[in-house]
Amino acid sequence: MAVILFQSPKGGTGSTFLAAQLALHLAGRGYEVNALDCTFQNALKMHFGFMPSQPVPELDGVEGEALVAFGVKLLQAHHHFRSQAFLREAERQLDRLFDPAHIWIVDVASEDRPLLDLLTPRCALHICALLPTAASLATLNRLSETAPAMQLDRTVFVLNQLDDRQKLSRHSHSFVRDLFGDQLIATVRRDEAINEALARFEPIAKNAPTSAALQDLRFFASAVEERIGLTQAVGEANVTVPGDV
């Protein structure tokens, strides 16, 4: 079982969007994928075509019927993870929270350090979305209190909303690439088609099949597969990867 964690110390960098795109990609490849929204915004569902008012079942499975779209099962757990008692219990029995027959895509809010600290040691990968902006780069020092960002072996970066027409964007790309080496696993070009697809509650591939960002997203998803060793297991439901809970 693989837990893939999405969290950026800077909000608004596209973590939720990237989480949804990876979940869609992996489900399309035949994996059993659960997407867990741990944010107050609860916006992950919108990337699967659901309205903001759509209730999402809780992780504990107590309330509501399963919510599945494009092969991805959607769950939320913001309420649970706000409880210190639940966090303590989760730390002891994390494997009971995450069904090992699935790949778990977990979207963690930027300010939710306790949950990040709980899940990072157990995740297969922590994906941190960055923007080519000073505000985003300035938060690189907030990734961990125990190790420098460059030494976080389970943390990788995606530079989102890249725009080569803009000088700072180009330079930021070079800077991040040279600073982090292969910790930078992908870049995604800025493309308004993404925003428009979300506004229509439609997949990007349907709304803008020629989107440049769509190609970048495919590369990103493939890079994640390769990074955690999923590429050889296409179509198999049970997947074992390094970092299993």
Binding site: L140, N141, K167, H171, L179
Partner: peptide, 20 residues
């Protein structure tokens, strides 16, 4: 002549929380 040394890059490189 257009190239700039962005202060934010220097700040990141000077930060032990990023580069150790």
């Amino acid at each position: 002549s257009e190239t700039e040394l962005w202060p934010i890059f220097a700040a990141v490189l000077g930060d032990q929380s990023v580069v150790g």
